[in-house]
Deep mutational scan, measured.
Amino acid sequence: SEEWVEIALRLLELGREANINGTILNLHKEEIEELIRRLLKRI
């Protein structure tokens, strides 16, 4: 399964939302940290 691709796409999506909203992603901080942890486990 290409889970890391899904994770990377989700991170990009959150990054785009952050640019549009001008936020520092506090809302998504925990989700982002969890996604990155899952991503690093696969490398």
Rank of each mutant, 00 (worst) to 15 (best):
E3N: 13
S1G: 10
L12A: 03
H28V: 11
L40A: 03
E30P: 04
K29R: 07
G22I: 14
E30Q: 10
I24L: 06
A18C: 15
E17Q: 13
L39G: 00
E17T: 11
T23V: 10
T23P: 13
K41I: 09
L9Q: 02
T23M: 06
I24V: 05
E17N: 06
V5K: 05
S1W: 14
R37M: 08
L12K: 02
L12H: 04
E30Y: 04
G22R: 03
L11D: 00
E31H: 07
R16S: 08
K29F: 15
N19G: 10
I36F: 09
E2P: 05
E13F: 07
E2K: 11
A8Q: 03
L35K: 02
V5Q: 05
S1D: 08
H28W: 14
R16P: 03
R16L: 14
G15W: 15
L40Y: 07
E34A: 03
R10D: 06
H28K: 03
G15F: 15
I43E: 01
I20D: 03
E34V: 07
L35H: 01
N21Y: 06
K29T: 11
R42S: 15
E3W: 15
N19E: 07
I32G: 00
E3R: 12
I7N: 01
N21T: 03
I24M: 06
R10A: 09
A8G: 05
G22H: 09
K41Y: 09
I20W: 13
K41S: 10
R37H: 10
I24F: 09
L14Y: 04
L39Q: 00
V5F: 06
K29E: 08
S1R: 12
I32R: 01
E3G: 10
E31C: 15
G22C: 04
L11R: 00
R38T: 08
L11K: 00
K29V: 13
E6I: 10
E33S: 10
L35I: 03
N26V: 13
N19V: 14
I20H: 02
E6L: 07
R38F: 12
K41P: 07
E2V: 12
R10Y: 12
L40G: 01
K41H: 10
R42T: 14
L14Q: 02
E2I: 13
W4R: 01
N26H: 12
I32N: 00
E31T: 02
L39E: 00
A8Y: 11
L9Y: 07
L27D: 15
I32M: 07
R38P: 01
R10P: 02
G22W: 11
E30S: 07
E30V: 07
E6T: 06
E33Y: 11
L27I: 12
E31A: 10
R37L: 12
L9E: 03
R42K: 14
R42I: 15
N21A: 03
L25M: 06
E2A: 10
I24W: 09
G22M: 12
I43M: 05
G22T: 12
N26C: 15
I24D: 13
R10W: 14
R38Q: 08
I7K: 01
E2F: 11
E17I: 09
V5D: 04
L14D: 02
L12V: 04
L9F: 06
E13A: 08
I43L: 12
E2S: 12
K29S: 14
E6V: 09
L11T: 01
E6P: 03
I7M: 03
E6D: 10
E34K: 04
E3H: 09
L9G: 01
E13L: 12
E6N: 04
V5I: 09
K41R: 04
V5T: 04
L40W: 09
L9K: 01
E13D: 09
G15D: 02
E34R: 07
I7Y: 03
I43V: 02
A18F: 10
R16V: 13
E17V: 09
E33M: 14
K41A: 05
G15K: 04
R42W: 15
L11Q: 00
R37T: 13
R37F: 10
R37C: 07
E3T: 11
E2Y: 12
L14P: 01
G22Q: 11
I43G: 04
L11N: 00
L27T: 08
L40P: 00
W4K: 00
L25Y: 04
L25D: 10
L35S: 00
W4I: 12
A8W: 10
E3P: 07
E13Q: 04
R42V: 15
E13N: 04
W4Q: 01
R16E: 03
L27F: 04
N19Q: 12
N26F: 12
L27N: 10
K41E: 10
L25T: 14
L9A: 05
I7E: 02
I43H: 05
L40N: 02
S1N: 06
V5L: 13
R42P: 09
R10K: 06
A18Y: 13
A18D: 04
I43P: 06
K41D: 15
E17Y: 08
E17R: 04
I7R: 02
G22K: 04
L25H: 05
E6K: 07
L40T: 02
K41F: 07
E31N: 02
L11W: 08
E34Q: 05
H28D: 03
V5H: 08
L27V: 10
E31M: 10
R16A: 03
E17M: 13
L35G: 02
H28Q: 08
E34P: 02
L12S: 02
I24C: 14
I20Y: 08
E33P: 02
E31V: 10
T23A: 06
S1M: 13
I32C: 11
E13T: 05
K41Q: 04
L11F: 03
L25S: 12
E13H: 07
I20E: 05
E34D: 12
R37S: 05
L39W: 05
I7W: 11
E2Q: 12
I24S: 10
A18K: 01
N19I: 15
E6W: 14
K29Q: 11
E17L: 08
H28L: 14
G15P: 04
E3F: 15
S1E: 07
L39S: 00
E2G: 13
